[in-house]
Write a protein that binds this DNA or RNA. Structure first.
Lengths: 249, 249
DNA sequence: CGACCTTTTGATATTTATCAAGTAGCGTGG
DNA sequence: CCACGCTACTTGATAAATATCAAAAGGTCG
């Protein structure tokens, strides 16, 4: 189940290079981190609310999400994660998980001991800054999600979400032209965007009818990127990409 | 306008001690930080979206909030800050502000140069961890807000917000029994909770009628804390208080 | 006192949720 | 290869929550 291999952490390096400036020495330092890799199915719970994890998780393949279950049983997905993401970096400093982390699709994930990350950050402060930067971008995405759910209509919201996923996939080179993986069920989109499944269905239908996107076989195609951005009130600033990685209009 | 004084940073120490374990040496290290203090009125914009701040802000007195202005002109408040909070810690690592930070009431704020904080965190890694922990708790609060706005009814949402403010004020000892400062206008509450002003008014009215709270002269009194918590589906776990600082039922 | 902001209230419109039922797709086992 | 069963998607009808509009009433501060 657990094994190591040469450049298994590559997705993290791709991600970090797209967002920060990474020297070859720093990349090597990351490559030398100890870790184990797991292949898991969809719906696999990586960590649960209340846990005290001793490892941090890196997505190598697949899609995961963080979510909470509320008093009435409703689920709110608070973030979605793709390869290269470190979705529970906060567990390094916040002992008790305040939410759950689970896969949405079959995934490959790497687990890195907290101690190793701590040590790396301490020995190499510049890398420490780069890694904590990831956590801060995470926070920036939360802020944008609050805006989406709080003040944007369902139509805008879904368009915005698609824009974000496109930019993030493109950042790690996991797109094919205007196509990105899009394996979410409509119920998952609903839980992420704070709406009902039925309404997600209708909004998606509208977006398709307007010629903005189409979805087939878990692949989403964007047909009119400028108009989709306008529709979704989308500005990639909050993703804090490096200059040169921004997406042309 | 700018001056220094003996223990002006005390609110930060109070806050950090409530959330982390702080030695006297570490407290001294914080006290020795360079800073300037400003007294400002309500509605003062500390930093704006697009800015590249070189200082980080500490709230010493008053209430501030972070917010974004969306494409249609709507405002979404993404967080609210009270004395002891470091509301733009992220600017240490994310050069460009992705949101605004402004006072909601007349306030006293301290500005600390980024370089000084960087140095402090580098020289004193344990303090570095404590400070970055603050940023992670910030993120945890965002997650809870997403849940509030995404999946909880307006009634629950407002009750939850009041619970959060109570626990946070009590943490820094700024409450008087079951009373806390509550200077928000209903329009501000609306922008924070993603609802309309009119609806805030009606929900507040309900909460008062149910005997849960009362508001008079910018002071909110909680009359039935256990029931308010239940009403607001509130569990303080996401605030990551130290053991012993949790609030008795 | 008067201007201005905030709160309150009522009436109405809109968005979005809920409920119910049917359809389509897809994997599995016979 | 087909039938079965499960899940996801779709659609329509209706209900509920919340927004919007309009206007009056209260406070506050120069």
């Amino acid at each position: 189940m657990a094994y190591r291999s040469g450049d298994a952490l590559a997705p993290l390096l791709v991600r970090l290079r797209a967002v920060s400036d990474l020297t070859e020495d720093e990349a090597d330092a990351i490559r030398s981190l100890p870790f184990t890799v797991r292949e898991v199915g969809a719906g696999w719970e990586i960590v649960r609310e209340g846990d005290r994890p001793t490892q941090t998780c890196l997505i190598l393949a697949g899609v995961s999400c963080r979510f909470k279950i509320l008093g009435d049983g409703a689920r709110q997905i608070v973030s979605v994660h793709i390869p290269g993401d470190l979705p529970d970096l906060q567990s390094l400093r916040l002992e008790i998980m305040d939410h759950n982390l689970a896969t949405l699709t079959p995934s490959r994930i790497a687990l890195v001991p907290h101690r190793a990350v701590e040590l790396l950050m301490q020995v190499n402060p510049r890398l420490g800054a780069i890694i904590s930067r990831e956590g801060l971008i995470d926070g920036s995405i939360f802020r944008e999600w609050i805006c989406n759910i709080g003040r944007r209509s369902a139509h805008i919201r879904i368009a915005h979400f698609i824009c974000e996923m496109f930019v993030r996939y493109r950042l790690i080179g996991a797109n094919e032209e205007m196509r990105i993986p899009f394996a979410f069920t409509q119920a998952e989109l609903a839980d992420a965007q704070g709406m009902s499944t039925v309404h997600v269905n209708r909004v998606l239908r509208e977006l398709k009818k307007e010629g903005l996107v189409s979805i087939a076989g878990k692949i989403l195609t964007i047909h009119d990127w400028p108009r989709l951005q306008r529709t979704g009130d989308f500005d990639a600033g909050y993703l804090h990409l490096r200059e040169g990685h921004s997406i042309a209009a």
